[in-house]
Design a protein around this nucleic acid. Structure first.
Lengths: 190, 190, 190, 190
DNA sequence: CATGAATGAGTTTTCATTCAT
DNA sequence: TATGAATGAAAACTCATTCAT
């Protein structure tokens, strides 16, 4: 694997994601990826040792990227509700913008490619959110229930909204985002 | 002669689901399925024309099954909140009990196997829930917001709770189920 | 292999011939033969040890049958031309009536089923014809050329006429048979 | 990169023909073809979509080739008998030189591979010969009988002579060819 | 580096044959 | 005997990976 043309890696990632959204991990072949990326199959092997490596690199790449985006503009010093909204809106926008990536992540999780370690990771990025929730509970603003429940509520909601947006073309206006946050806040608030 | 044993279909389904949970749709082979089901590879082809057919039949089979389970004990004549709770609890319990199936369903959705029709189906089963929500809105018990949002809220929540239960061994006590419903009801209620 | 129901063997032969005419030796399977014969696959194996045996038995069966028919009404004491005509007409009628069989014989000749011995046989039945030709040459009625040539002339002609009859629906009226013999006799006569 | 070698198609054709002569269409497998052609099985699939396609392409290829060869040096302006002799000799020499091809053509005709269209084709190449015969009849040089009969006479004779040549090692000297044409001309001439 | 033809191991699928009923 | 479901070896076909150009 060489590193000459960094853009090619990006092109390969993009092609892979696109294909996975369409036909799933089960449906991809290196030939298809190469074709989608307008490269020769052999070229893919210049940048990645093999298919497994490509998939795993892509996973790591996305993991890093999506985590960063979640906390854009987030300031833990602000009030709980403001923080929560920021996170919710960030999460939703990210999920919609990176739906392909989300599909890949979920497919990856139940695939022959994932390593046991990789299964463990992924929780860490949630820490700042957990802390926020704990604070909310102490301030008696958030229901005194398990973080798993609160987290599941939010993560699940975001996921489904994004899916509706992509699959059923459910337009995500700022008004709808407002309403959605209202709903989730009603659910969490003490 | 040996009589065609319809239970074999069940055995093949079970084996397939088990494998998919472990290695995903990408990881299954007919040989593995047959081995898991303790059959010869050829036998699988007596019951299913080919691998694609097997996957598709399995999907339809599960779709039907989970839909039926969702409405067990459901009586639309009862008050909105009671109905909602019934659906929520049913959905959650089903999802936990049939996590393998859920994994398969999601993988299937983004796979080379799914047909366009199959994508369309699956919405229909939601109709009774939609009607319930509409009624709730008329009775001013439920927030006057889009069904997609309400549905996404519930479906996403159920999904994540079941996932936490299975993956992180989050014990789903009846108390937690109560709390969870309280949360979701607070979210929905007007 | 049992012999209880001799008719079943006939049915299997007939089914096999029919199929081979349609899809060739390359296209037959035991399952197809059984279906065509309205039997279960297993039943075929009661009458024949295996597929190879079935094909070979069929060959022997047909070989015997067709040879017998060639000399019906043939009397070497009659004049050469009369004898020749008898043989020609017999051969042509046989070939048309048993076209399926002919197709099989030719396919069999170039197939993995034929044994080396079987390739050798098949010439013997020609002996009376050879003798007839020799006599014709001595009587200066037939051209003094190699028997292979004379035989090829007749055999080839008969084959093509039968093929035209079956494949192109070329009606074989008695008038046409007369003309055809006239042609072949002109070719042979000194 | 290695350049796609069109000669490989020729090599595959040759290997296939060779095998078919030995074991018939029924006996060939892609693995055997590849081995005979000294290629990997996968390579065959670069040049042909599947086995059926390979067989069909081979047929078309041979059909074209043999038709062209048949009319080499043929000039319809020459006298009937000269034309006829040219065709006869061409046909015979081709048939002997391409016996493998002939075996394949006949097997193909009764095989699961042939398409209905392919059955129709193959007659067309006969047109110039038909025209020649019609002219011969008008000039009262050829017997006023059906073209099917005349054609069958010639085609069958050629076929059997070539077969005798190959199978029984019947030496085809130019003297014998002369005699053979004399025979066939006596048959046709008015 | 880039290409895509070639390779052959691995998968899907077929089918001759067996065997429980 | 007769049946056709079950078996598994073998055939068709795919695709990750290599390699000559």
């Amino acid at each position: 694997m060489r590193v000459k043309d960094e853009r090619k890696i990006e092109v390969i990632y993009e092609a892979t994601l696109h294909l996975i959204q369409e036909v799933g991990i089960a449906g991809i072949t290196v030939a298809k990826i190469a074709k989608e990326a307008k490269l020769a199959t052999g070229t893919v092997y210049i940048y990645f040792k093999n298919k497994e490596e490509l998939i795993n690199q892509l996973y790591l790449h996305l993991k890093k990227q999506t985590t960063e985006n979640l906390f854009v503009g987030f300031d833990p010093a602000e009030p709980i509700k403001v923080c929560m909204k920021k996170l919710f809106v960030n999460a939703l926008k990210n999920k919609m913008a990176s739906f392909k990536e989300g599909v890949f992540m979920e497919q990856y999780y139940h695939s022959p490619y994932i390593s046991q370690e990789a299964k463990q990771i992924g929780q860490t990025k949630m820490l700042p959110i957990i802390e926020l929730m704990e604070r909310g509970k102490q301030e008696l603003l958030i229901k005194p229930i398990e973080n798993e429940v609160l987290l599941g509520l939010m993560a699940g909601f975001v996921r489904q909204l994004a899916q509706a947006h992509i699959v059923q073309k459910f337009e995500m206006t700022s008004e709808r985002i407002e309403h959605s946050f209202q709903v989730i806040w009603d659910a969490m608030k003490a």
